[in-house]
Each structure stands twice: as C-alpha cells, then as structure tokens.
Design a protein around this nucleic acid. Sequence first.
DNA 1: GTCAAATAAAATTTCGAGATTTTGAGAATT
DNA 2: AATTCTCAAAATCTCGAAATTTTATTTGAC
Lengths: 258, 258
Amino acid sequence: MTERSQDTPADGERSRTLVESAYSSLRHEILSGHLKPGAKLRTEELRLRYKIGASTLREALTRLLGEALVTAEGQRGFRVAPISLSDFSDLTNVRKMIETEALRQSVLAGDEAWEGRVVAAFYRLSKVEERLAESAQAISNDFEQRNRDFHQALISACASPWLHRLNAMLYQQSERYRRISLVNRDVPRDVHAEHQAIYEAALVRDVERVCRLTGEHIDNTLSVVRQVLTRDAAVHEPKPGRSIRERTPAGKHAVEKI
Amino acid sequence: MTERSQDTPADGERSRTLVESAYSSLRHEILSGHLKPGAKLRTEELRLRYKIGASTLREALTRLLGEALVTAEGQRGFRVAPISLSDFSDLTNVRKMIETEALRQSVLAGDEAWEGRVVAAFYRLSKVEERLAESAQAISNDFEQRNRDFHQALISACASPWLHRLNAMLYQQSERYRRISLVNRDVPRDVHAEHQAIYEAALVRDVERVCRLTGEHIDNTLSVVRQVLTRDAAVHEPKPGRSIRERTPAGKHAVEKI
DNA sequence: GTCAAATAAAATTTCGAGATTTTGAGAATT
DNA sequence: AATTCTCAAAATCTCGAAATTTTATTTGAC
C-alpha cells in the first residue's frame, strides 16, 4: 500500500511536489537557525518529522547542497553547513562586489517602473522598521522579507541574470548569519537611516553614492554579526527538548549552538 | 531481489556512491555537448542507460540543478539547461569580474609555491597547445583540462573561498560553451600567445596587466563562441524525421544534436 | 590495562514498483 | 474549423524495504 498522504504543507507553502515543500521547510529551518550550523541531518529522523520517503527527503537535501546550506560527505550523510566568522567575512566582501555592481547597472538603467518598485519597497520596509525597536524577535520574519524586497527592488533594473543569481545566493547566505545573530540578541543600529540614505541616493541616480553607501551598509552588518558571534562563542547552551543528536565536529569554533 | 550491481564506473571515475558517479557522467555528457541544450532528460531512458534506480538518478539530476546545468519544472521533469548567446555574453561579463578579482588577490598574495604551480601548469598547457593545431577534436579533453588547471593555478593564491566557488561555477558554464563550439567547428586563434602573455605578467607580478590581459582573453572567447553560435543558428534545421519527441524551446538555435 | 579484531547496532544509500500527474489523440460540442 | 472533453498511454514523483557502509560495542590476545 503506497497511498500518498499529501499532508498539509508545513507552513505557508503551496509548493507542488513533496520534494519542493520539504526543500522549502528545510531551508527555512536552516536560515532561521532552528537547525543548527554543523548539525547532523539524519534522514531517519527528518523522514519521520516530515512524513516523507527516504528518497524524497534526500532529493530535498541535495537541492540545499547546491545553495551551500548543507554539506554532504561520501557515505556519511548530510550536515547543516557550518558557519564561521571567516566565512561571513569572505562572504561579505564578495557580496559587496556583486551587489554593488548589480546596483550600479540597475541605477543607470532604471526606468520609471523601477523607481516605483523602489519607492514601494522602501515604504513597506520603513513601516516595519518603525516597529522594529520593541519586538525585534517577533517581527524578524517580516523585517527580513521586506529588507530583501528592498535590496531586490534596488537592483531590479539590472539586466544581468547571472548577477542576480549570484547575488541571490550570497544574500541568502548572509541572511542566515543575520537571522542567527538576531535570534541571539539584538544589537541596535540605525539601519533605517542607512536604508533611507541609500534610497535617496538611488532616486537621484547618484550611482557612486549609492554604491558607496550600500558597501558601507553591508560592511556594518559584518561588524554587528562579528560582535554577536564572538560574544556567543563562549555562552552557548544545548537546545532543550527532543533535539537532533549530534556531535560537535572537531575543533570548530563554537558557533555551533545558537 | 535488490542486489547492488556496482558496475564499473563509466570512465575514469572512482566516485564512492552511485549518485556521485551518475552525477559525474551526466555532467560530462552535458559539458561535452553529448546531451544537447534544452533536451528533455527522461528518467526512464537515463535510468536504463546508467543502470541505476529512479531515485538515484533523480538525485544526480538534482545536483546538476544546483550548478545550473539542468533545469527542472514542477511535475514536468528535467531538461538540459538551454544555451543562448545572451546567456554567454552575460556569463562572460560576470566571470570577467570574478576571475579578475580573484586573480588580483592571488597575484598580490602569491608566494613561491604559487609561482611553482603557475610555472608547472603553464608548461603542461603549452605542451598540449603545440598539438592543438592538428587534432583539435581529439585532444580537446586534454586541452580543456590543462586550460582549467592553468587558470586555476593563476588564482590559486587567492584566499577567498567564495570567489573560488563562484569562479568555478562560472568557469564550468563557459567551458560548456567553449566545448560545444569546439565540437562544431574550430575557429583558430592564437590562444597560446594570450596564455603566454598572461603567464609572464603574472610572474613579474604586474597585477594590472595580468587582469587586463585576462579580461581580454575571456572576451576573446566570447567573440569566438559568438561566431560559431550565430553561424550555426542558420545551418540547423528541425529535421522532419519521424517522432520528434523534442520541441525546440522557443527561439533557441537548434544546437540540439551535436 | 591496551590494542586490535570481531560483532552488533545504526545510519546511509539504492532499488523498483506503485501512485499521481501530464500529455496527446480522438470524440463531441459550439 | 476551432474549442472543449474524455480517457488511455507515458512520464514523473513517491514510498519503504533491502543492501551497504559506517560507527559503536564487545571480545580476545598480549
């Protein structure tokens, strides 16, 4: 008997195939930090959790492999991709280069429709930033979404699919670091002011200024994450409840636990 | 009855898992152009060809998805990623940026061991380039291998894993275009002279010159591929033979069969 | 007691049949 | 003729047990 159960998709996913929804769920759990960096991903446990077959789960994990959110080794299964300060530092530099270039092209090529997207995205971002001071934790999903939309809108007039592709990948990676840092503690920073400055420079088509400000903006994120990660290296605690059993891979700096 | 046959790996692959060797074989077939851009990848057929299970094949294809060598849609299976002039043009620009930056860092940071790798790789490349005139087709595998090694050696002192990762991806993509062009017809170009110029500039640590030359080098490849692709766009005709299971994706030049 | 081989337990990988969906050819309707 | 409907063939997607490998534990020799 092999009836497809077609269980209700975990969250708000309406992906068609089971692989796709498992992929979405797993990605969300990794990005949000619920699945911890370096953690072993045992097929058996995940299989039961998501109520899917072994191959289906395996395929979902393989997709994440291509996005560098999980690692895979020989006959030793999958792990959540580890994080490290040096990785994030590297990531930040490369992302600065890519996003800046995309931005340059976009601001130069942007038409009226582009302006409209930027204005709209900035407005929505501002709204959520107002509420960010109090309940940083609660609305971090909202904020991340709109922050991504804003950055995306800014470069949306860039005509290069490859720049978009690479940028999306790097942005997702850095989003992971940001969210992991956010969950731990929130380091205040006037991120709204930075966004506003970028926004205004974009609309007056001051390319050099937009690029410079965005570069600094990205760098500031590095600073914040650096603070959190170095501080947490000492503090961490094992997660309560039925958690995925795991061994800390040898010699990694202890950003393992969130 | 589920015995593992562990058939001899296709070529020189000694990958551990079946997924890995299927992945390698498929990648090679796509890069070499044996599997044509845009072609449908029917699981049934491939399954029989490689003598592996459905899920195993599926996982191998999913890996290629992450490298943008295949595309996948909903419940409609996999296809070899299509190619186009505009894609290659875009690819070339982005790759120029990435590889140039990696090169800059590498030449600045390169130590004696780096010099050694560059010298060795250049020597091996030169050897194969001597023979390139006659049997371009026959030794294209050799040439591509050593060409990749040479470019890799040049940037091997770059300390950024992300630059390496992105560069590897872009290089592989452009390799695909180069090989497809090569198989069709060979457009002569004094590629050896270009390599030599880059080589010499690298060894005397003339960063700006290395980057400029490499940029031009990459651009030249674009020109060559452009010639071949535009020429072939006309030559090919949808063969009216029986049972065209294959719809040429809209407006693509028909590089289906090589 | 220590080290290594043997054995047991656990986890990963693979298979292929069956469930589901898409496709396309012909019938029926407008 | 063009569009929609029907339904069978073909293809994709999913499952879970079986095969294989890795990891942990025990046993045995020195």
